[in-house]
Amino acid sequence: MDALSRIPQLLVYGIVSGSILSLGGIGVSLTYSILGFSNFAHGDTMALGAYLALALLPVMAQLGLPSGSLGPLSFGWDFVASLLLAAVGTSLAVILLDRLLFARLRDTHRITLMIATVGVALALRNLLQFVWGPQPHYYTTTIQRAILIPQLGIRIKPDQIFIVAAAVLLALLLHLFLRYTKMGKAMRATSDNTALARVTGINTERVILWTWVIGASLAAVAGVLVGLENKFITPELGWQMLLSIFAAVILGGIGNPYGAIVGGLVVGISEEVSTAFISTGYKPAVAFAILILMLLIRPTGLLGRRR
């Protein structure tokens, strides 16, 4: 098959992986805008979410949740429940981490905090490897048949539609939260000007708490969805995506969650479509190239503002 005729199919893959990158990127962007540092542990937070869901899966089945497949999807209600509980668990873990570590460093330099996140990243990944081992794990071994849409020349699996739909739903919920709730507005205010937010009476510690909860929840969901798309999870899962996520966040304008969504899609699609022309092995290089290009042309990002 020639390169051009593969593009529609690659676009589908790109949108799927872009959706996941977007969910991951939102957390990085929010952390940056509210707390002021780049969180290099975000990828491993995704992996933590993926493993928590793995651990919860048998528990859910034991509690009597039906594990039979939901329609054409490869998973059942037990998986959906695990996904949601993994988001809660990851949030709790991240809040604990904030209390134990980041809160103590709150008033130090942002570089100190960034390096602390690198430490957390290493610790988390090794913890996962210690508990579950380096070998891949599977949520399900069901083999799923792709739906063929001959008019467009694409095939898409029901699970992939689920991934995109979940990402769209979460992005929409985030938008409504930021736009219409008091805490959402307070988050935007804090991101605008933390000092002013404090003198206004906004409890910035609570804003920070919400930032972690949203970021961690979306990270956990993203991690589980990666497992669903790849069919397996390893402790390296998040770390491997981190470069693409950062490229997406910077592309969209760091600190802007909407930018992260746009950036995620652009990076995801570029990475996949590039495989029509160059070897799949260069995918990370594509993210890198986008990152460098963006920093050269428009360092504030597509939707970024001047600081």
Binding site: K185, R188, A189, S191, D192, N193, A195, L196, A197, V199, R305
Partner: peptide
């Protein structure tokens, strides 16, 4: 009311 930057510009 601080001296400068005393509003949230994106709100």
């Amino acid at each position: 009311v601080p001296q400068v930057e005393n509003v949230f510009p994106s709100l």
